[in-house]
């Protein structure tokens, strides 16, 4: 287990290091002068030069890379050019929106998809099964931005139950803040729920066909007990894996959904930073997102190893 963990951690570090190289190189060649953008077209050359020096843009490339990566390793994410505050503060504020959004979406989609999947599997070939599969197909096919719009139309403007978007901030209290995340989380969770329902159905069907389940049944164990004790536990393995694999898509979706509901999350910060050529923020946010994905995948791997009752050597 220790060896497995060490290997995994090493791999994680390697992936992140490669990611940092890619991100840095990409942003080095990005067209557009951030100083010009900040000061406008009337700025005088000396003013521009002063600002570039202030931003550290006059240093050689390797120095800047090492400075950036060294800062990240020691927990210093640098100062945003445009906002003039530490990037760490910005990222923390925005993560306080994006992380709960993603978490809520996973929670909602799992809560909907697991029962649906189990239901479909246990009613295989019947109306309930077809219903769940139809939901799953539609959920994957409908673009989530479209779904979000329909939700706003119906629940915000039609019924007035929710605000059309925006985020009041956690300082306004848990209730209002969570409420403003519900519609976005439902939007974000639709595709996830559709995929998960289908995976759950397949996993449960697979496990139902395994020898040990048949044995348990043959021994006279009730259907409910078989489902709980044997089927669900084993079906959780592929389900967990898929939840993990889907995490990157979920974060990507969050970037989009934040824009549908104009939530001040990491995705919106990234869009703004790119258009502002606030390169340090872009680099840091991309690395944070990549680190989140990689870390979640690692956790999934560990869970996988922990849940999997079968001997090692499969992962």
């Amino acid at each position: 287990m220790i060896g497995f963990l060490a290997r995994r951690l090493l791999g994680l570090g390697l992936t992140l290091w490669l990611a940092s190289l890619v991100v840095f190189v990409v942003l080095e060649v990005l067209p557009g002068d951030p100083a010009l953008l900040m000061l406008g077209v009337d700025a005088r050359p000396d003013t521009l030069a002063a600002l570039r020096a202030q931003m550290g843009l006059d240093q050689p490339v390797p120095v800047r890379y090492l400075g950036w990566i060294g800062g990240l390793l020691s927990g210093d994410m640098g100062i945003s050019h445009t906002y003039a505050v530490p990037v760490a503060d910005l990222v923390r504020d925005r993560l306080a929106v994006t992380a709960p959004l993603a978490g809520l979406a996973i929670l909602l989609s799992t809560a909907v998809a697991l029962p649906l999947g189990v239901l479909a599997a246990s009613r295989r070939g019947r109306v309930a099964d077809y219903g769940v599969m139809a939901f799953s197909q539609l959920g994957v096919a409908i673009p989530n931005f479209w779904f979000g719009i329909l939700l706003v139309l119906w629940l915000s403007i039609g019924l007035g139950w929710f605000e059309a978007g925006g985020f009041p901030g956690w300082s306004e209290g848990l209730g209002p803040a969570l409420k403003s995340l519900i519609l976005p989380a439902v939007t974000l969770g639709l595709t996830e729920a559709a995929i998960l329902a289908r995976i759950t159905r397949a996993a449960v069907l697979d496990t139902l066909g395994e020898d040990y389940v048949r044995t348990a049944r043959a021994k006279g164990l009730g259907a409910g007990a078989v489902m709980r004790r044997h089927v669900l536990r084993n079906a959780l393995i592929p389900i967990t894996t898929i939840v993990g694999l889907q995490f990157a898509f979920l974060l990507g979706g969050a970037i989009v959904v934040e824009n549908v509901f104009f939530l001040p999350g990491l995705g919106r910060l990234l869009f703004q930073a790119i258009s502002q050529r606030d390169l340090i923020v872009v680099k840091d946010v991309v690395m944070v997102l990549a680190a989140l994905v990689v870390a979640v995948n690692l956790i999934v791997d560990i869970l996988y190893a922990a849940i999997d009752p079968r001997p090692k050597g499969m992962a």
């Binding site: 992936t15 992140l16 990611a19 890619v22 970037i255 994905v293």
Partner: peptide, 22 residues
Amino acid sequence: GRLTDLTFAFPAILSAILITAL
């Protein structure tokens, strides 16, 4: 394996945004 991991570490939309910014 490392290259695919690297690709999957970036949400697809993120890669697309960076590529089109570039």
